[in-house]
Design a protein around this nucleic acid. Sequence first.
RNA 1: GGACGGAUGGCUGAGUGGUUUAAGGCGGCGGUCUUGAAAACCGUUGUGCGUUAUGCGUACCGGGGGUUCGAAUCCCUCUCCGUCCGCCA
Length: 415
Amino acid sequence: MIDLNKLISNSENILERLESRGEVIPLDDIKQLDSERKDLIQKSDQLRSFRNSENKRIGVSKEKPSLEHINKMREISDKLNNINSKLDDIESELNRLMLVIPNVPLEEVLNGNDETDNKVIFTKEDVKNIKTTIPHWDIAPKLGILDMEQGVKLAGSRWYVLKGKGAILQRSLVAWMLEKHNQNGYLEIAPPFLVKEEVMVGSGNLPKFSELLYKDIEEDLWLIPTSEVALNSLYFGDIIKEELPLKFVSHSQCFRREKAAAGRETRGIKRVHQFEKVELFRFELPESSRNAFDEMVNEIQLLCDELGLIYRSVELCTGDLGFQSAKTIDIEVWAQGSEDWLEVSSISTCTDFQSRRTRTRYKNAGEIIFPHTLNGSALAIPRILIAILENNLQDDGSILVPKVLQKYTGFEKID
RNA sequence: GGACGGAUGGCUGAGUGGUUUAAGGCGGCGGUCUUGAAAACCGUUGUGCGUUAUGCGUACCGGGGGUUCGAAUCCCUCUCCGUCCGCCA
């Protein structure tokens, strides 16, 4: 949620910056609702003030109020109820409009319409001559570590089953990543994978993107598409008492409906309905959040380095930013078999957009502020598996396990 | 899932219709005293909204709704917590 007063006064060029995302803001409606809202609040407060003082007088005097007086006061209460229910309507309408406005991009974010305007800002091209170009959907089933058919049998298209050394490799990646981040000062969190609606609203996934999410209708709970959603609401409605920054790491299953059609982009396990991911999340002081963002990008790039992957960093333009993001850098790894760059991480600063939605606050030198929230995948597991399988394929058909993972897997190659 | 009991400010805890826009205590902050500290004493104390803004008004006693001139207090409902029973990894 962006700051209503800033939007109305268009301070810091908020309107222009929102429009640079290709967003149309119903500013006139919002202004109108806000002024009606203020008007009603004043009327309501005045009536209440009068009612309070009258009732206090009755209480003190200990005399029975006259029928005439009672009728007069009843009239005032009716009027008050009327105003308050009108106020409720206006506030919920205003809220409805505000909740679907995306975050304001940072000034520094490059302008653009869509992903073709994104900019590659760093490439780690540590290419050892990879001769083979066999995609993972051919390699992995042959090695008996991935079964797409059984996934379909169990749950349908775009569900899969990892087996044996494939499953162990996944588990090892998760364990290695968690341990790395623990060492970097992130507190490990194991959150619920289903959350309340207000938690989804808090992260920005609702009300706008419900079609991308799974929901348990019976209990009115939503399955998280990333643990960012859960971590963001750890202090829902609270004033954080711990000192900032707060740094969290979490491993979760991620559930996404992914309604896009099947095709080259979705072959194998590139885009699936359930996947594992390790996620970084931070609550930061506004003045520190920009540095924190760069820190997180570095931490995440380092993971790719250590896994021996070819990767690049892509700065997203305004038109391609996610709803809640003010700035995003994607990390993509090269997958030789698919001959494609795969997005394995997306690092975003959401400034105070999410903390406003969850009403997470922090008292900084006596002043109550909305902390900035930042998140980044570190990393999304299936696409890392793809890169390892396709890039580390040996002439004899076996897969070399990256050195850093071997102490977790207990084996050096998959054959 | 069933029965009973709860939910009040940072914490504790009073308050069963009207000087309660919440007593007292603890903690926090400021001060007096002191060489310093402790103790004692004095003062202060949350969040949101509105505003003609060193102030004023208003809302908030788990959430929502109702009764009433007036609700922390009465009624309905939901949620959560506790205890016991049942079930279960």
